[in-house]
Amino acid sequence: MSGPGNAPESAQAREVRLKAGLEAVFQAELSRTVTVSDLVVTSAGARRGNVLFTATESGGEGQRYCVTYLPTLDIELLPIPQEAALFRLAEAQGVPVPHVHFATEDPQWVGGPLFVSDCVAGETVPRRVLRKVAAEGTGETIAAQLGSAFAALHSIDPALAPPALARPEQSPVEDALARTDQQLRELLQPSPIFSYAQRWLENHAPPAGEGLAIVHGDVRNGNVIIDEQGLAAVLDWEVAKVGDPLEDLAWTCLRCWRFGEDDKEVGGFGARTPFVSAYEAGGGAFDLERFHWWKVLGTYRWGLGLAGQAAAHLDGRFSNIVMAMSGRRVGELEYDLLSLLKP
């Protein structure tokens, strides 16, 4: 992002700069002389960029890649080289992720750290994903593939996690409750339903002492690539941490990620049974009560997140119409919470 007073960089100027930086970094990292072309910006978040491009060696055939980069040296959630290391760790364990070719923290190429991975073909836009899945009949397969992917990820010894990955301060459950309690206090207006949920979660907190795992933290439609065979890759690992594996399973099953396919609990793709069966077949341990607790926590957490977006809009930290309307989506999460907590 450009600072105050700077004119924002035009899309064209950015493309020229990225192309030159990518050609130079291919030379530096891989000793390959390539021409970079056909850049496509897939996500232009405020902080991170994801750009697909073709790299062609003289006389060779072009190959598609993806560069994930930070446009500046601003603070990262998870440093890019460590995110790349996590991709490699997950890939070695059989989690479908794009293969990483190299990572660098050197800001001279594109302004900040970057890593280059394979470009995985498929669909990522949630509603288009669900149309494709319906047309190809792959929903139940994807539910099972997600269960297998989680089993593979959660089987990794968390001691191998990159050092910058967040680790629990007390326990995943206590940390989550402390965070939501803080957010509850910061709401612009009191929410009796959220207060009810916080109290319920405290009263029903599952016991500590269960195994920790590397958790992705945000596996849902929108963060996965889906092709004709189903799940092709899991993306966006920047909120990964060491935590409770059931937190990962539950987050994928929240109603807010089903995009209208409400009766398909696993991300709008399929039912819970193939998901859990595949998880257990891959060595994962499922626990219904813990799963339910994390679903309530996740629903509550996303409701608080939406309220936080509205607050950021109103106090001017991040103002736009989408953030404003997030405040008017909180009611959906309140309703889902109450449904999950029906006495």
Partner: peptide
């Protein structure tokens, strides 16, 4: 129409 669906049934066996 958002409240046409009720998540209460998900607590045990899972939806559908």
């Amino acid at each position: 129409g958002y409240d046409d669906y009720d998540s209460a049934g998900e607590r045990l066996g899972g939806a559908s």
